[in-house]
Design a protein around this nucleic acid. Structure first.
Length: 464
RNA sequence: GGUGGGUUGGCCGAGAGGCGAGGCAACGGACUGCAAAUCCGUCUACACGGGUUCAAAUCCCGUACCCACCUCCA
């Protein structure tokens, strides 16, 4: 079956045709590492991880590049406020981001390039643009280099905007621009900025403009033309529009498809605008497992706006527990891509329809539970369920989750010994039909935060 | 001013001309000493007003409300 995806550039769902058969070059704009990652940030990570996993499941060899922006205005400002070097802030936040991705089982990309590691590639690209007449060094001696928006007729095509309809940039510093809409490729160093935040260039010391890094890095690792470029919805303009303009103006065809994930908001407001301290990943993971948060994110389509709430997250965790419980009851099975239900494949092939795919997952769980209730073999359903979860990055048996569960084996063994002793006493009481004593023992265990479940094979316990 | 998106049952959340997505919650039943889990059943929704059509949540026109982007936000 053909994979189809919604292309932001054409505003329609269309067949995915790779440039090279069997291969996919995927570039995703990662984060600017300036603060702790929140739920909204990782949605992008999870969405594109699902894309990458699905493409691999379909047999594509995927080269996945997801960058990290480790130098920009905000990093410099925040680091200065905190009284520490900008690279220390960027480094710390980068580690936080990696931890957040790991705790949500977001697979590492093929490579995660840093902006600061690719200044020569950017200088090369900027030089090409100047030679082609699409960029110019500012005449005011600032050392800035700008992209000449008026020189590129196609400018605005990605977001269907005419240059004349755009609001002129309100940003304070139009030093040396020919047109207010021209954007910086290179920013000359200002006296107020640390020496470490500048690199030598033909136009004087300075640092990269925001957009140039992605064009340069995508070009380096994926070539002048590649398949899919992704990122958050807000990056369409100016970031992606500018990336495309500067790459194409330099003679590189750039991305064939553009994908953008929608927002997570709180109280109807963009997360980055709300305070959202309780919504950083470390804070959320104090209350919920990573796998539950991932399920919550995956159960909505990537282009749907999600209004975040802890109630909805709790509901998602309950729904996911139902799936896990079925797998527990059905016993061990192996992942087998051939076992994916047709409806699941169709849903995923249709622009990554994870919400519909989730419905198939639940249908299969019910089918399996029905078989178990009838005393029949449920291994077929179990294999299908586990494989679907695997494709979505939600397989509970994936060792990746062990990172967050942090089980202390010794402690577990000790508790197990104690609880088993009590459960044995209860089993004896039940055998004597001494229900009062049996329930008293269970209450004691429950009070300790442990849940007892009776099964045909005897009682089991889990920590709440 | 320009560009784009949204409004679906108690709640979350799919679908995009006909065939009740799915989950959560609730209620009834089965099973269980009681629970839990599970199974069966019940709850027939698409912002509003027109229109097109044999048939509209879905297409068209209008209205209301909400949201995003318009030069360094996932």
């Amino acid at each position: 079956m053909t994979f189809r995806l919604y292309d932001t550039a054409t505003r329609e769902v269309r067949d995915f045709v790779p440039l090279h058969e069997g291969e996919v070059g995927l570039y995703v704009c990662g984060l600017t590492v300036q603060s702790e990652p929140h739920v909204g940030h990782v949605r992008s990570g999870v969405n594109f991880d699902v894309l990458q996993r699905w493409l691999r499941a379909k047999g594509f060899a995927v080269t996945f590049i997801r960058n990290v922006t480790d130098i920009d205005d905000k990093i410099l400002i925040k680091a200065a406020d905190q009284g520490r070097p900008w690279y220390n802030l960027a480094g710390d936040m980068h580690r936080e981001l990696t931890r957040a991705y790991e705790s949500l089982n977001v697979a590492a990309p093929t490579y995660e390039p840093l902006a600061t590691g690719h200044v020569p590639e950017m200088i090369e690209l900027i030089t090409d643009l100047i030679e082609a007449g699409h960029a110019y060094p500012a005449t005011d001696g600032s050392g800035d280099v700008y992209f000449d928006v008026r020189s590129w007729a196609d400018y605005g095509s990605l977001t269907r905007q005419g240059v004349d309809d755009m609001e002129p940039a309100a940003d304070a510093d139009p030093r040396g621009k020919r047109d207010p809409r021209d954007f910086a490729l290179w920013k000359g160093r200002k006296e107020s900025e640390p020496e470490t935040a500048s690199w030598p260039a033909p136009w004087g010391r300075g640092r990269p403009g925001w957009h140039i890094e992605c064009s340069a890095m995508a070009g380096k690792y994926l070539g002048p033309a590649f398949d899919i470029h992704g990122g958050g919805y807000d990056l369409r303009f100016p970031h992606h529009e500018n990336e495309q303009a500067q790459a194409r103006a330099a003679g590189r065809p750039f991305a064939s498809y553009w994908m953008h994930n929608a927002w997570i908001t709180t109280a109807g407001e963009k997360m980055s605008k709300s305070l959202g301290n309780s919504l950083t990943i470390p804070a959320v993971l104090e209350r919920y497992r990573g796998i539950d948060l991932r399920y919550y994110l995956v159960s909505a389509h990537y282009r749907s706006h999600v209004e975040f709430s802890f109630d909805a997250l709790t509901e998602a965790a309950t729904a996911f527990a139902r799936i896990e419980h079925f797998l527990d009851r059905a016993g061990e099975v192996k992942v087998d891509l051939a076992a994916l239900p047709d409806a699941f494949v169709a849903a995923m092939d249709d622009d990554l329809g994870t919400a519909t795919a989730t419905a198939v997952l639940h249908d299969t769980v019910r089918e399996g539970n029905r078989a178990l209730a009838a005393g029949e073999d449920a291994s077929g359903a179990a294999i299908a369920v586990r494989t679907m979860l695997d494709v979505l990055g939600l397989d509970p048996a994936d060792p990746a989750w062990a990172v967050t569960t942090g089980d202390d084996d010794k402690l577990t063994a000790a508790v197990d010994a104690l609880v088993k002793g009590l459960l044995h006493e209860r089993t004896v009481a039940r055998a004597e039909k001494d229900w009062a004593r049996a329930d008293a023992i269970r209450d004691r265990i429950t009070d300790a935060g442990i849940e007892v479940t009776d099964t045909p094979d005897g009682p089991t316990w889990t920590v709440n």
